[in-house]
């Protein structure tokens, strides 16, 4: 069933802050096999001009996607999450995420489309730090595949 177009433009309340920890960044960098010292060694990060160790570019997705849960699980929207696949992902950074950040995400539904029975949902997550400064924007396209026989 096509999703309700009136949800386009809807913005959800900012999430409670997520505190980025050095060891969480290390765990993520190890999981993707990336030994860039900027992720684990404060001195190496400082040498590059960062005040703290920074996170790999896609690290923030865990935070923005959790925030997008507000949209995905909104019973009024009625998305069938069991049929959802990740279509596109994009990030635009004002600065890298770094250890010690306390990040809040504000999610907005940018677009809802229906194509060949598939529901396509574009969600924008604006990520700000504790000072209210913009850190990164994440755009996530989710595709809910048409149910068989629908």
């Amino acid at each position: 069933m096509a999703l309700d177009q009136s949800f386009v433009g809807r913005t959800y309340p900012p999430t409670v802050p997520y505190e980025v920890g050095r060891e969480k960044i290390r765990e993520f960098a190890e999981a993707v096999g990336d030994d860039n010292p900027a992720y684990t060694d404060p001195a190496a990060a400082t040498a590059l001009g960062h005040p703290e160790v920074i996170a790999p570019p896609t690290f923030v997705f865990a935070i923005t996607f959790a925030a997008a849960g507000q949209v995905v699980e909104d019973p009024q929207l009625g998305l069938d999450y069991s049929r959802v696949v990740h279509g596109d992902q994009r990030f635009a950074y004002s600065r890298p995420v770094r250890a010690g950040d306390r990040l809040r995400v504000t999610s907005t539904i940018e677009a809802i489309k229906s194509l060949a029975g598939n529901d396509i949902l574009d969600i924008r997550g604006e990520v700000h730090d504790e000072a209210g400064e913009h850190v990164v924007t994440a755009w996530t396209k989710l595709v809910a595949r048409a149910a068989e026989g629908a």
Partner: peptide, 22 residues
């Protein structure tokens, strides 16, 4: 995450990536 390593290893500073989409 793997694909962007080609860029971050090249650039040296991962913070040099200002946009990334796939």
């Amino acid at each position: 995450a793997e694909a962007i390593r080609v860029v971050t290893d090249w650039a040296g500073d991962p913070g040099a990536v200002v946009e990334y989409g796939v």
